[in-house]
């Protein structure tokens, strides 16, 4: 597989940078018996490029580690004074210096997973539609661009739309089924989040589905499979790890979303009783309260929320990676 690619690369006519390789020497090179002579400039470019890659890669690692260390250092006062009770405490009272993160932890996880459950049917449907049924044409193009636009719209716009349109609709829906009819709460936030995270799973899923080798699909069709059967028994099994990776990306987005959620969730620091009650998420508590948190423990308790959110994301990603490798083996 690799040889023809190499051939093409080495003999490309547009390489005018003083290459010494001629096509007659190629067979030796392929066998690996003769060293290829390269000019100094080539070697230098090669080294510079490699170093740049390493530096960029290291920077990313250092950045993430740096954020983690900063979070740990800044939350030390609260870890020291509140201990592990912070994680299961149900009261958040800045006036009396009582900080319990459980309602926010539950709120974050509840909204994110509910949003994921709502969004998956849509994102998979869009992925299959664009990847397999109609990859080309004006409507698929429109759909593809629209879905990508969803990812580009700032979250404050979703929050505003949620406040003005979604909350009243949810309120009348809630009063028609006889639960508390405020409109704000976990359910509204999950709906908003679901819309916001559709493009991540959909776009990744679409490119995965398009990469399914056509000989596999043609084989299935030749055996008399219908389109649905091809999707079910060829495409989905072939792409499941990619589809799951897309879902994981969506989940990450949902966990960290702040602005849109804080505008519709109701921002109450009690344990949510059901999916229609109001609540709060870790990200929105940080955004709301950090600017005025003047007491050391308060400030540090808020940063510890950030640390918990960071760790939750890491744990969910690790579980996700496990599931993906399970799937692929």
């Amino acid at each position: 597989m690799a040889t023809p690619v190499n051939n093409e690369l080495l003999t490309r006519p547009d390489n005018t940078s003083g290459r010494v390789i001629s096509s007659s020497k190629l067979p030796d090179e392929v066998k690996g018996t003769k060293r290829v002579r390269r000019s100094h400039r080539q070697i230098r470019t090669e080294n510079v490029f490699r170093r740049t890659l390493i530096i960029v890669g290291l920077t990313m690692v250092v950045l993430v580690l740096g954020i983690l260390i900063t979070l740990i250092v800044q939350s030390t006062p609260s870890i020291k004074s509140l201990g592990a009770a912070y994680l299961w405490g149900k009261t958040w009272d800045p006036v009396r210096d009582i900080y319990g993160a459980l309602p926010f932890l539950v709120g974050t996880i509840l909204t994110s997973f509910l949003a994921l459950a709502i969004s998956i049917p849509f994102s998979f449907a869009v992925a299959i539609f664009l990847g397999e049924y109609y990859p080309k044409g004006w409507f698929p193009d429109l759909l593809k661009n629209t879905v990508e636009l969803i990812a580009a719209v700032p979250s404050v716009i979703y929050g505003f739309w949620g406040l003005a349109v979604l909350v009243p609709i949810v309120r009348s829906f809630e009063s028609s089924i006889g639960v508390s009819s405020i409109g704000y709460g976990i359910f509204s936030s999950s709906l908003i989040l679901a819309v916001m995270i559709i493009p991540y799973a959909a776009s990744l899923g679409r490119s995965m589905i398009q990469m399914v080798p056509s000989n596999l699909k043609e084989g299935a069709y030749a055996l008399g499979a219908t389109r649905w059967e091809v999707i079910r028994s060829v495409i989905l099994p072939y792409t499941k790890s990619g589809l799951f990776a897309g879902v994981l990306l969506s989940l990450g987005r949902a966990l960290g979303e702040t602005m849109a959620v804080t505008m519709v969730i109701g921002n109450t620091s009690f344990m949510p009783k059901n999916i229609f009650s109001t609540g709060n998420t870790m990200a929105s508590v940080i955004a709301n309260e950090l600017p005025e948190a003047d007491k050391t423990v308060y400030n540090s308790a808020l940063i510890e929320l950030g640390l918990v959110l960071f760790l939750v994301t890491v744990v969910i990603n690790m579980i996700g990676k496990r599931v993906i490798s399970r799937f692929t083996n």
Binding site: T91, W92, D93, P94, V95, R96, I182, Y184, G266, N267, T268, S269, T278, N280, N288
Partner: peptide, 8 residues
């Protein structure tokens, strides 16, 4: 403060 009632 820790609001006993309502939505934020």
């Amino acid at each position: 403060v820790s609001w006993p009632a309502g939505i934020g």
